[in-house]
């Protein structure tokens, strides 16, 4: 059996609205094997994004242990978490979140600025990532000059350029038309199949979830 890339033990997460504590994840235990393409589904407010944020180390559990890529993320400081994320996590956003003043290539290069790679090596990595997503010819285009699907592909190239262990995708097709969404899902499947990336995708779309190997449903902070 493959080693777990994500191991959650009785993770409890709550937020406070004033003095009112709102539980979001309730003693959730979860194990995601390395190389899995997992889709997490559930209604709004079920805790999907919170779960993704905990895996990415953007948030810390209120209680319980969250081990990702062999690291207990609860024990790291914010600075250490940032360094850890840069090495292990690739994040794909629903709204692409590209920097508008940077070209596609410069957006993809952004995470590599945190590495000791030379300018030439960075350029090679960027070219490879853009080629993988089929946008090498759009390297010098700004986000406003790209379609939504192309922007998302640049977002994926940015997520994979530093060769992370896990790709986290938060509604990656939620803002795209059917054809563009299909292209993105195909691309994610390829990354999982050919590059053995562990992919955890949050989605509302049952069609998108069908492309994953596993589907987990979350409801009111509990796995169904």
């Amino acid at each position: 059996m493959a080693l777990a890339m994500v191991e959650f033990q009785k993770v409890f997460k709550s937020y406070f609205r004033g003095t009112l504590e709102i539980p979001v994840l309730k003693n959730l235990s979860l194990s995601i094997p390395t190389g899995t393409f997992l889709a997490i589904m559930g209604p709004s407010g079920s805790g999907k994004s919170t779960l993704l944020n905990l895996i990415a180390g953007l948030d810390r559990p209120s209680q319980g242990a969250a081990v990702v890529a062999g690291q207990n993320v609860s024990s790291l400081s914010e600075g250490e978490l940032a360094r850890w994320r840069a090495r292990h996590i690739g994040f794909i956003f629903q709204f692409y979140n590209l920097i508008p003043v940077l070209t596609a290539a410069e957006n993809v290069e952004l995470p590599l600025l945190l590495t000791p790679l030379s300018k030439r090596d960075r350029a090679q990595h960027v070219h490879a990532a853009l080629e993988l997503v089929g946008l090498a010819d759009r390297a010098h285009h700004y986000p406003r000059q790209l379609s939504g699907g192309q922007e998302q592909r640049v977002g994926i190239a940015r997520a994979i350029v530093s060769d992370p262990d896990i790709l986290l995708a938060d509604e990656p097709t939620g803002n795209l038309d059917k054809n563009a969404a299909e292209d993105i899902l195909t691309l994610l499947s390829r990354l999982n199949r050919e590059m053995k990336k562990t992919i955890i995708m949050v989605t509302h779309d049952p069609h998108a979830a069908e492309r994953a190997q596993l589907v987990q449903r979350l409801d009111k902070g509990l796995l169904a």
Binding site: A56, L58, E78, G79, A82, R83, R85, A86, R87, I89, F91, F93, N97, I99, L110, P111, L114, R158
Partner: peptide
């Protein structure tokens, strides 16, 4: 926030 997600530190 996106930059922090990518690993940029404060």
């Amino acid at each position: 926030a996106v930059m922090k997600t990518l690993g940029f530190r404060p």
